[in-house]
Design a protein around this nucleic acid. Structure first.
Length: 298
DNA sequence: CATGTTTCCTGACAGC
DNA sequence: TGCTGTCAGGAAACAT
C-alpha cells in the first residue's frame, strides 16, 4: 500500500522519466470509480500539455502541466478565460494510488495489464499507465488558480493536512491538542498529517515507545517530541530505501523497495520484539490492523 | 466540529 | 479441483 515514502519514490522515478515530454493523447477506461474529474475534462487538460514536473503532496502524485491545446470542453474553457490563462494555462494532474494503484512508464509494445484505467501517450511514444485492480485510486485534474491563494506561495494542490517531513515540533504538538481519538487514528488522519498510512503509523509509534490506543491529547510534550522525531526518521529511512514492498508495490521501474526489511512491528504478529523479545501483538483500531510491542510501547 | 461506522473493490488465501 | 467465505485497507459518505 503506497504511503508517503512509496509515493515519493514513484513520483521521483516518474519525474526523471517524463519531465519535459509532451502529452499526445489520452485513453481512459470505462470504469467510472477511478475518475474524480469528468473524463472529458481530464482528456482536455492533459492532451497537448507539457509535463513540467512530477512531485508528491501527501499521498498524491502531482503532475504539473503547462501550455497545451485549447480545451474542447466548455466548463474548462470558461474557467480558463476567467483566470486569463488561456495563453499559458497551468494545470495539475493528480494521481492517488489508493491501495493497489500503480503509475508505470512503459514502452508501447509492453502488454497492457489488466485493470489499466488510463494510458497517457507521450511524444516519444512511451506511455504513462495507471493500473489499479481494487479501484481505490483516483485521477483528477485541477486548474491552478493564482499563486496568492495558498500560504506556501506555491500555486496548486497543497492537500488538507501538514507535510510530516516539514512540520516543526511545536506545530506537531498543536495538531493533537484536544483530540480524544487514539494517537494511531490521529496519525492516519490526512487532514492533520498527510502521507502517513498504516505501516508508518505503526512503525513510528513503536520507535517512539507509545501505545497506539493512547488518547492523542493525553500524550506528554516529551512523548510528542519523540513521536515527531520517530515519524520523520522512519519516513526518511524508508524513502532512502525506496519504500516498503508489501503485497505488490513496485516503483516506476517495477523495482521493489527494501524498507519492509526494517519493519519492527508491521506484519510481525506473534514474532519476538526485536528489542525485548516479547511477542508482537495485533489489534484492530478504527478498522485498521495495528501492530505493537506490549512491553516496549506504553 | 469531533468521532465512529459503513461502503467501495478484487486478489489472495483458508477451509472444506 | 473448485467452490465459498473472509480479509485487507484509504478516504468519502453517512450517522451519532
Amino acid at each position: 500500500m503506497p504511503e508517503l515514502p512509496e509515493v515519493e519514490t514513484i513520483a521521483r522515478g516518474v519525474d526523471a522519466r517524463v519531465r519535459g515530454r509532451e502529452i499526445i493523447s489520452v485513453w481512459l477506461g470505462t470504469k467510472r470509480e477511478p475518475l474524480q474529474s469528468r473524463p472529458e475534462e481530464i482528456v482536455a487538460a492533459l492532451t497537448g500539455s507539457i509535463i513540467a514536473r512530477v512531485h508528491r503532496v501527501g499521498k498524491h502524485i502531482v503532475v504539473d502541466l503547462v501550455g497545451g491545446s485549447d480545451a474542447s470542453d466548455k466548463s474548462v474553457r470558461r474557467s480558463r478565460e476567467k483566470n486569463k490563462q488561456s495563453a499559458s494555462s497551468r494545470r495539475q494532474w493528480l494521481v492517488h494510488l489508493g491501495m493497489t494503484g500503480r503509475l508505470l512508464v512503459s514502452q508501447p509494445d509492453v502488454p497492457v495489464a489488466p485493470h489499466t484505467h488510463a494510458i497517457v501517450q507521450l511524444d516519444d511514444d512511451r506511455e504513462i499507465r495507471f493500473v489499479d485492480p481494487r479501484r481505490f485510486g483516483r485521477l483528477a485534474v485541477l486548474d491552478v488558480a493564482d499563486a496568492e491563494t495558498n500560504q506556501a506561495g506555491s500555486a496548486g494542490f497543497v492537500g488538507p493536512g501538514q507535510e510530516p517531513l516539514e512540520i516543526s515540533v511545536d506545530e506537531f504538538r498543536a495538531l493533537f491538542r484536544g483530540r480524544r481519538t487514539p494517537i494511531k487514528s490521529a496519525l492516519l488522519n490526512q487532514s492533520l498529517l498527510q502521507g502517513v498510512g498504516n505501516i508508518y503509523a505503526d512503525e513510528s509509534l513503536f520507535r517512539a515507545g507509545i501505545r497506539p490506543k493512547r488518547q492523542a491529547a493525553r500524550l506528554s510534550g516529551r512523548e510528542l517530541m519523540h513521536l515527531h522525531d520517530a515519524v520523520q526518521t522512519v519516513l526518511r529511512e524508508a524513502i532512502a530505501l525506496g519504500g516498503s514492498s508489501v503485497s505488490d508495490y513496485v516503483d516506476a521501474d517495477g523495482v521493489k523497495g527494501f524498507f519492509q526489511l526494517e519493519h519492527k512491528v508491521y506484519l510481525r504478529t506473534g514474532q519476538p520484539c526485536l528489542r525485548c523479545k516479547t511477542p508482537i501483538r495485533k489489534i484492530v483500531l478504527g478498522g485498521r490492523s495495528t501492530h505493537f510491542c506490549p512491553h516496549c510501547q506504553r
